[in-house]
Amino acid sequence: MTNQYKIFPLGDSAVTFDMGNSISEALNQKALAMQHWLLANPFEGLKDCLVAYSSLTVLYNPVLIKKYYNPATTVFTWVADLLQQAFDKSVQTKPVARELIKIPVCYEAGYGPDLLPLAQSARLTEQEVVTLHTDTIYNVYMIGFLPGFSYMGEVNERIAMPRKQTPTPVMAGSVGIAGPQTGIYPLNSPGGWQILGRTPLRLFDPFAPEPVKLQAGDRVQFYAITKKEFEEYSS
């Protein structure tokens, strides 16, 4: 673990602890460990805690912190010191051997509008792209953008196509690629990722006891299913 990091205000009610502008499992694990430490050592006014690729952001209510702790410094400095403690004191346990989550994806025509163009530009067959996409075990780095949208990585560099210039409508369940990232759209949404296929699984269900199925730190692998199997899932 390097000690290169930066703590900065994300407005007057949030602080980000940024460990470097990179997609790294080690940094992501450290951010998760810090989050774990903070949730075990909460403070009055703590509103939320967000893990991203290589950063942790804490959202807080400055009025409550001022009232309860009356720091001599700014509230920002007070929270920044606490994040420093979280960094120093959190123990980065070895990633728990979580059960591998297997996600069925239909890559057939009509399900992945960008599969063929991506294959052509990568000089691969569609089947080769699917194999490369399903061979890798992905780490879920973060959930963001939409309720339950999982940012996973890293995809094989042969199929790591950049996102589109202009977003287009994307159907719920669509599985896409953007550079080294892969992810699943939990809801119908405009989106710029290259869509390879679609899963029949519902990854966001607002009224389920756990509305979001995947969480940061999960391990995921995709497997191909036929159109018929997709329809059987959905019915």
Binding site: L10, G11, T16, L50, A52, S54, S55, T57, I143, G144
Partner: peptide
């Protein structure tokens, strides 16, 4: 790389224009 944003964050878009994130902003 993506990270958290907040209500009031002023972002610079690739076309040089600005967006201020409001209540229903995306989380990252």
């Amino acid at each position: 790389v993506s990270s958290a944003v907040s209500f009031g964050t002023i972002q610079l878009l690739p076309n040089g224009q600005l967006i201020v994130l409001m209540a229903d902003h995306q989380t990252t």
